[in-house]
Design a protein around this nucleic acid. Structure first.
Lengths: 343, 343
DNA sequence: AAATGTTGGTTAATCGAATTACCCTCGTTT
DNA sequence: AAACGAGGGTAATTCGATTAACCAACATTT
């Protein structure tokens, strides 16, 4: 590999001059500039980033800490990040916490988080990344885990702390829109298959649902709200319950696509057809949504956009560390397919 | 950040001694060692990897070039790589070629490949990665693209060149096993919904299918072999054709899960139940397989294992560049669910 | 007693670029 | 003619570690 010294020799100047040509850090005569440029060309020179980084303290790299790369929104977010930072000449250092690996109880989980995140952060810090993006799969609050991190930090997908910039999507607004969509198609008796009772997305989506109902002058019926565990099986089981009610709903809002899949299958099994006998909507727009029978109307998460925006924020923070924390909430869009009976 | 100089000062020795303590590169008296270790403790010192790398030429980082992180096997492979190299203190530099972004015609595709791969490779080279793993989603031959790469290179999932190490899975053997499984359950008239006619996986899986048939003394019926395009729709359409044959098959081997999904839906729609009226198997074990009605029996790709093995190979090559090229083909396992009528 | 070896450490060069401080040469002012 | 300023370029230091070469002190051999 050619070094700056070689170039200096070829061009008959000092290394300082070469450096100035490359970085435009000083005005030089056109002839000298030209000679240096030529030398760089012929020697096929490319500056050694390690030396550059050692001197400047900047590595032009961003650490991306993901809870688990196999988690569904994660790869798409990472894709958005990579594309965006790449355009500005940044590299991506990926660290996977592997949080999908094993299931822990509540206590072990927190402690595993702590140690794994600490490992990841210190590894990234040792690599001297210019900034860190934390990609969480869940809406969790990890305030305590990033205490004295003297590097720019941005949360993507999950919420961060109040002192940090984060980019997430709109749970409540999406639920409002989706519910409005059902109401506008004539549904007044809408059931909900929710996620874990006290989880953040459940709460927010539920409140959106209720808001939309109130807005339309409809009352919220508690017996139509059932809580599952985000898994296929609970969607299946809860649907069985719902259709055996004295006065069943005419539409079901499942809080994710997996439960919606279980729901549709339970409906099929009971001889009810979707959407004629029952309308169903989901949330997340996972791959499965388009392959259900009928294809599922659901809410698409702006995964790539979250990555793009998070990347923009981290680069802004690197360029200007005093930028105040930003809280960005990106709007989701409804993907209309065939699981809702149109008015 | 504390530097080695600081430690030397605190311990009252030279920086060389500190270095020797850290790297065990020289025998030192227990007292000195102890003093240095203490100093490192109290100052919370961690060596500057940039300086280290500049001097040694090794960055302890591995470049991972993925065709598209959103591609299904990719995230899992990357997870396996990350886990494995992390244990040996390597970091991962991820570069996404975004090859799923747009569809090109054959010619543009090759040219887009060329430029994007070149970009990716040169970016990784500039980062001085110690080795590169190329994660391809498809079985493609990219010999020409990595010509004069003077760094260890390993292909994961896709085949590499004959001069390179690669880790992939067994298309033909898996097809043999899967077909045997059908035959052993009494099926003699088995249809195939293949992928693109001349693609590598189609050819190999087909030859496995035929081998298993011959092995059992069964004849290969050409009219039972239909070619699709790997997408849901073609599975659906081809199944419609198959069930209208004068003597329809008793089992269908779809060459991926997406086409198997289309197949099952077509069957359902025609009033045929799986597996009573028709057995169906798929390939890939994508998420959708477990949520079909009935859950699909299919072949699980050893994605994580591929990542793990590729990581091991690259680290071996870094440690010992003269290791001869290895061709590793990892065995797939059948995931037995409920879409095949058992004898 | 001289020669040789061993132990435990230090000095100084090096990796490749960035950057500060300085220097020389003209051209312009006063 | 002396003073000043600007333009164009260089030498030397710095970033933080690694490592070859060297050295002093003491022990062992002949």
């Amino acid at each position: 590999m050619a070094t700056m010294k070689d170039i200096a020799e070829i061009a008959g100047v000092s290394t300082a001059t070469v450096s100035h040509v490359i970085n435009g850090s000083k005005k030089l005569s056109p002839q000298t500039t030209e000679r240096v440029l030529m030398a760089i060309q012929t020697a096929n020179y490319t500056p050694n980033t390690l030396a550059k980084s050692l001197r400047s303290g900047q590595t032009k790299s961003i650490g991306v800490l993901v809870e688990d790369i196999r988690g569904l929104p994660v790869a798409e977010i990472v894709g958005g990040i990579g594309e965006t930072i790449g355009k500005s000449g940044y590299r991506m250092l990926l660290f996977d916490l592997h949080l999908l690996e094993k299931l822990y109880n509540q206590y072990e989980q927190i402690s595993a988080y702590r140690t794994r995140i600490n490992n990841g952060v210190s590894l990234l810090m040792q690599a001297h990344v210019d900034g860190i993006i934390y990609v969480g799969m869940h809406d969790r609050h990890l305030d305590f885990l990033f205490d004295p991190l003297e590097r720019p930090l941005v949360f993507a997908y999950s919420h961060g702390t109040n002192q940090d910039t984060y980019v997430t999507y709109s749970n409540q607004d999406s639920a409002i829109e989706l519910t409005r969509y059902l109401i506008s198609n004539g549904h007044e008796r809408i059931a909900v298959i929710a996620g874990h009772p006290h989880s953040y997305p459940t709460m927010r989506r539920l409140s959106g649902f209720q808001l939309a109902l109130q807005e339309a002058g409809l009352s919220v019926q508690m017996e139509l709200i059932r809580y599952g565990d985000w898994e296929y099986g609970s969607g299946f089981a809860l649907t069985k319950e719902l259709i055996q009610m004295p006065v069943p709903p005419t539409a079901i809002f499942a809080m994710n696509d997996l439960m919606a899949a279980g729901c549709i299958h339970a409906l099929n099994e009971a001889g009810l057809s979707v959407p004629q006998d029952m309308s169903v909507v989901g949330f997340d727009n996972r791959e499965i949504a388009q392959y259900l029978q009928p294809p599922l109307t659901t809410v698409a998460l702006p995964t790539k956009e979250i990555g793009v925006r998070a990347a923009l924020h981290i680069m802004e923070l690197i360029a200007n560390p005093d930028t105040p924390p930003q809280r960005e909430i990106i709007h989701c869009s409804i993907v209309e397919r065939k699981s809702v009976m149109k008015k």
